[in-house]
Design a binder for these strands. Structure first.
Lengths: 206, 206
DNA sequence: AAGTCCATGTAACCAGTTACATGATTGC
DNA sequence: GCAATCATGTAACTGGTTACATGGACTT
């Protein structure tokens, strides 16, 4: 039982879904806290079934589409999930290649660095907007039911809140760095304009 | 060349270090953005050397301690690092088991949930304090040199700033959830005190 | 006596990614 | 004609973790 197993159980605890559906959920958005590809999900579902955590029944579709296996969580699965949720969890160590690059940013050309940080600022702003839109939609549709702890919506709500906080921080950080890089460049430019030829310090020329 | 390779080069670009030293750096703190164990680092250094990114020379220690290999970055290594830094980087997907658990928190006992969130709030507050102390130390020792982009300190500074922002967000999120859980419990308690026997709604008894 | 620090590794395992396979149908 | 959607998988690879090995000296 790896985290992904519980991720799948966490979705199936809300509604029955096919492997394909689960793959859609795990691919992007919705849950801002994990991701997986079909090639991992299908075998994992088989394992969950072997362990009695889920069952499936085949649903024939009378149009062109292929049959699908719709999975449901079992009592054992729900219990395992409930147990896992309140078990102690070690703190995750960060693994973000972009942040790792930041550590060596002093070696980079400031212009290129700016481009990269603007790209990431953009991407995370977009993700932030998506999360905020999703939360707004949930609020509109369900109102204060989001705060009732016994409802699945509570789980969605706090997960999205995490995503929002994370993306805000990320965007803020990118902007901070961008500002510093721009100042650096303006400083250089000002120096060049004052004295076109190479001279390191800020002495006044004759 | 995996991210770890560049993490190691990023450290060696600042000063020569032994495998053991590198393992210490990668184990905890300092760089809040990656981690690795000796069992991965030593073979990785051998690969880096085979590729001409680093060289080593053995340093005999005249006390009891075993000899060590001190690694230095080569011109090729520095170039590879510089190139990698400004290459586009895909946005990292989050993988935090604790956040994944949050998604299914509606299944949990509120008391246990509170305990877990208080633990994490505590752990991340500590990490935050550590980063802040580290930044304060650098500021004290180096002053505004931290903002000079061409100095390694700039890389350290922005990496630590990332860590601070991340931990702040994490602590904030934990507190938010804790507050909601506490309200939930107080609501329950108030209901119990009003009418000790089980009754679902807020009707007045005769 | 037991555990930690210094210092360098090897071997086995496993979660997650990449690549590939199948096949009907709908939309551009 | 070509790509995408629906639907389910297998096979190979790889980055990272866990476990194990060595060995002297210093600390509790």
């Amino acid at each position: 039982m790896i985290p992904l197993s519980y991720g799948l159980l966490g979705l199936l605890a809300r509604q029955p879904l096919s492997g394909y559906d689960l793959a859609q959920y795990m691919k992007k958005r919705v849950a801002p806290m994990w991701s997986a590809l079909p090639s991992q999900i299908y075998p994992e579902l088989a394992k969950l079934e072997a362990q009695g955590m889920v069952t499936h029944h085949v649903v024939e579709q009378h149009d062109y589409r292929p049959d699908k296996k719709v999975y449901e969580i079992t009592k054992a699965g729900r219990e395992a999930l409930r147990h896992w949720v309140t078990e102690p969890t070690p703190v995750t160590t960060l693994r973000d290649e972009f942040v790792l690059k930041a550590y060596s940013l002093w070696l980079a050309d400031p212009h290129e660095a700016l481009t990269r940080f603007r790209e990431h600022e953009q991407a995370h702003s977009q993700q932030l907007a998506d999360y905020e839109a999703l939360l707004a939609r949930l609020r509109r549709e369900w109102g204060s039911a989001l705060d009732q702890m016994n409802s699945p919506l509570f789980g969605s709500s706090i997960a999205i809140h995490y995503g929002i906080g994370y993306e805000r921080h990320y965007v803020h950080w990118c902007r901070q760095v961008i500002e510093q890089l721009e100042q650096q460049l303006h400083g250089e430019q000002a120096a060049r304009e004052e004295e076109p030829s190479s001279r390191p310090s800020s002495e006044q020329s004759s």
